[in-house]
Design a protein around this nucleic acid. Structure first.
Lengths: 168, 168
DNA sequence: TTACTAACTTCAATATTTGAAGTTAGCACG
DNA sequence: CGTGCTAACTTCAAATATTGAAGTTAGTAA
């Protein structure tokens, strides 16, 4: 299977990865959540090659994550903004930020702080169960693979087994 | 900047990306959260090439996300399990799953369901502010870049500007 | 007319991924 | 004792993607 085919799996994680499964794309998203909007800002703050940046911005726009619009006509200049679909990726980027803070920080103090606008407190949002309100982690949840995804997995497994059998 | 240097930025998102900023790595994590443990399972259910799988597992082990252990001696067979550091990546994978459910699903019904073990209800955990308990999204939070990260960004920006100036 | 800017595009060199095939260390069957 | 089978990789050559450097476009400003 090629990277470009990951999105064809009947799995919500895989489908999300087909859009944001790339470090440069996620750095662009980080910048957007830090309120960068211009090509130059993305390039300067991520350090990525302009060819790659252009191709990623094009793809994200096609995927409906970003909207490109001119912020002036002459000379033509553009900005990129998150759509609602893009804004909704916030939990992904935030989770990465919090994991990085917890597990990858050095002695130089917190690089980012977050304030909840509504209650005006510094906070690190966490996941809770909407039913009981308790904080949840990996050990607290049980995932069940439904028939539609199970069938897809069974198909992949069979293909894999057929392949290894043919090798002999 | 090269992909392999992303982790040197003083940014928690970038540092996390240096470990999980790759679609195959995240698919391996998905499998681990779905309780896969063996090389063969990862290969069969992700469809990735064995060379890539082996190199990713090696790196994840080195990064302290996984532990490799023999589950039998003769013939030698191994399994891979999440460490605490790895388990703590759950919010990243869960956020991706939920975004995929919301924005990338087709008509064939939900591929995965989650049950909160403690209250036994089907639930889609969401982010809340720990201070006031309110659900939070991108628009509700204000990020502030602290001096240590700000300095790093300023350095990158200057380097970028120096580079484009030299081009002329 | 020359310098400068933002937003790209092009090109050649390098690095990574892919698919197919091969290897290793055993067990199981006839 | 030989053949087949398994899980967990490794190797190789071809295809694909990324990188760094340089170039382009459509303007404004001095």
């Amino acid at each position: 299977m090629r990277v470009s085919e990951i999105g064809r799996m009947k799995c919500p994680v895989a489908r999300t990865l087909s859009i944001v499964g790339d470090p440069w794309t996620l750095l662009i998203l980080r910048e957007l959540f830090l309120r960068s909007r211009r090509f130059e800002e993305f390039q300067g703050y991520t350090g990525m090659a302009p060819y790659l940046l252009a191709s990623r911005l094009k793809q994200l726009t096609k995927d409906g994550i970003l909207e490109k619009r001119a912020y002036q006509e002459r000379p033509p200049r553009y900005e990129y903004r998150l759509t609602d679909k893009g804004l909704d990726l916030y939990p992904v980027v935030l989770s990465m930020s919090q994991w990085g803070n917890r597990w990858m920080s050095d002695a130089s103090g917190p690089p980012l702080t977050l304030t909840h606008k509504h209650c005006d407190s510094h906070s690190a949002p966490h996941l809770v169960c909407p039913e009981c309100g308790e904080a949840v982690g990996a050990r607290d949840m049980r995932a069940e693979i439904m028939p539609v995804m199970q069938a897809d997995r069974a198909r992949m497994w069979k293909k894999f087994k057929r392949q290894t059998a043919r090798d002999r």
